[in-house]
Design a protein around this nucleic acid. Structure first.
Length: 336
RNA sequence: GGGGGGUUUCCCGAGCGGUCAAAGGGGUCAGACUGUAAAUCUGAUGGCAAUGCCUUCGCAGGUUCGAAUCCUGCACCCCCCA
C-alpha cells in the first residue's frame, strides 16, 4: 500500500497512483482527526468520497504516532494523549475513540490502537506496551460497530521471541479478520527484525492477511514475504522518491549525484512508468532545479517499482520459484 | 569638475590590528530517510607530504613583533552635487 497519511499520496493524482499498480492505500487516523477532523471527512463522503480513491483504504490507528511523536505523547492505560503537532492542543485517542474515528472516516480496514515503543528498549517497557496492546485490541474489538469495516489486530513485543509469539498467539485467539506485525523497523538492525518475523508469523492464522506495518526497503519486503507476510505499507518509495532516490534492480540511485548529469539511460530499463520515459540526466536536472516534477516522477517510479516487485514475488511463489527470484533480486541490489 | 561610499574565499555578505582559512546565507559535492511533524535533515566545501605548513580578503608599496583590518599611490564600481 502506498502511504497517503493525510488522504493523499503526496504529489500524485489518483490515476497516477492507480497506474503504478496499487490497489489499496493507507491513511492515518491521528492526522486526519486533527485536520480536517473525522466529522468533516465523514460529511464529505468518507475517505473514499473525500479523496476520490475508489479502491480499498486502510487506516492506521495512531499507534505509530505514540512512537514517532513520543516526545509530545503520554500513554496511560485508558488512552494516548497527544499534544497536537499542529496547534499544541490536547488530543486524546483511546482505543474506543480510535475505532470511532476510523468508522467515521469510513476506511475498509481499520487498525486497533497499539502501543509502539522504540527499539531496542528495556524489557519491562516492551512487555508493558505489548500487554497494553492486547488489552486495547479487545477494547477496540468491542467498540467496533460497522459490519462493512474489517478491524485488524497488531502484534507487539519488541525483539523478544517469546513475547512476540505469546502476543501473536493471544491476539489470534481473539479471531480478528487480519493481523499485523507492528513495532518493527523502529531502530533495530534488519537481522533482528527478520528473526522476530520468524517466530511471530507462524503464530498468526494463515487464512487471514498478515501485514507487516511500515516496512520497508525492497530487500526487507522479500525477507518478509519469505516468512509469510502478505501486506505492506511504507513511506520509503514516496518519501525517498521526493528526496531524489530511485529504486532499481541495481539498487537505489541518488539522482542528484553528479554522475547522472549526462546519463541518457532510463532509471530502470524496461520500466513502463512515466519517469522511465525520460533520461536520468533529465531527472537529475529536475531535482537540481527544484522542479516539482522531479519528486512526482520518482514517486511514480518507486511505487511502480515496489508494486512490480511484489507482483513478481507473487508470481514466483505461484511457480514455486520464490527463492530463485529472491536470490536474483538481492544479487542485483548488491545486498548479498 | 567637486564630495561621499565601495572592491572579502564559486556567488551574496559579515569582519575593521593578533583568538581569521576568515560569521551567516546561497550554490556545489556527498550522505541519511522503513505504519510521513519530512519536496526534509546531516556533513564537506582554498591547497597540501596536513595535531603542522603554504596561498588567499582589487593591485602595488609602506607602518607594525603581527594587517582582510592602519597609511600612500593606482585601477575599477556606485551615489550625490555641478
Amino acid at each position: 500500500m502506498p502511504v497517503g497519511t493525510l488522504g493523499s499520496v503526496k504529489g500524485l493524482e489518483l490515476e497516477q497512483v492507480r497506474a503504478t499498480g496499487a490497489e489499496m492505500v493507507l491513511a492515518n487516523t491521528y492526522h486526519l482527526a486533527l485536520r480536517p477532523g473525522e466529522d468533516i471527512v465523514e460529511s464529505l463522503g468518507g475517505l473514499h468520497g473525500f479523496s476520490g480513491w475508489q479502491g480499498p483504504i486502510l487506516t492506521d490507528s495512531g499507534g505509530f504516532q505514540i512512537f514517532s511523536l513520543a516526545h509530545r505523547t503520554k500513554v496511560t492505560e485508558e488512552h494516548a494523549a497527544f499534544q497536537s503537532h499542529i496547534d499544541g492542543r490536547r488530543v486524546v485517542i483511546s482505543p474506543e475513540r480510535a475505532v470511532a474515528i476510523q468508522e467515521a472516516l469510513g476506511s475498509d480496514v481499520a487498525m486497533v490502537l497499539d502501543h509502539v515503543v522504540a527499539l531496542p528498549n528495556r524489557p519491562e517497557v516492551v512487555r508493558d506496551a505489548a500487554e497494553r496492546t492486547i488489552r486495547w485490541a479487545r477494547r477496540c474489538q468491542q467498540a467496533a460497530t460497522r459490519s462493512d469495516q474489517a478491524l485488524f489486530a497488531i502484534v507487539q513485543g519488541g525483539l523478544d521471541p517469546a513475547m512476540r509469539a505469546d502476543c501473536a498467539h493471544r491476539l489470534a485467539e481473539l479471531d480478528f479478520p487480519g493481523y499485523a506485525v507492528g513495532g518493527l523497523s523502529v531502530g533495530e538492525p534488519p537481522e533482528q527484525m527478520y528473526r522476530t518475523l520468524d517466530v511471530t508469523v507462524p503464530e498468526l492464522p494463515a487464512d487471514r492477511p498478515r501485514y507487516l506495518m511500515g516496512v520497508g526497503r525492497p530487500e526487507d519486503l522479500l525477507e518478509a514475504i519469505r516468512r509469510g507476510i502478505d501486506l505492506f505499507d511504507c513511506v520509503m518509495p514516496t518519501r525517498n522518491g521526493r528526496n531524489a532516490q530511485a529504486f532499481t534492480d541495481e539498487g537505489p540511485l541518488r539522482l542528484r549525484n553528479l554522475k547522472y548529469e549526462r546519463d541518457e539511460r532510463p532509471l530502470q530499463p524496461g520500466c513502463p512508468c512515466a519517469a522511465c520515459r525520460r533520461s536520468r540526466g533529465y531527472i537529475r536536472h529536475l531535482f537540481m532545479a527544484k522542479e516539482m516534477l522531479g519528486p512526482i516522477l520518482l514517486s511514480i517510479h518507486n511505487l511502480a517499482y515496489y508494486q512490480r516487485l511484489v507482483a513478481d514475488a507473487r508470481r514466483a511463489i505461484e511457480r514455486d520459484q520464490f527463492e530463485t527470484f529472491r536470490e536474483e533480486k538481492l544479487r542485483g541490489w548488491g545486498v548479498v
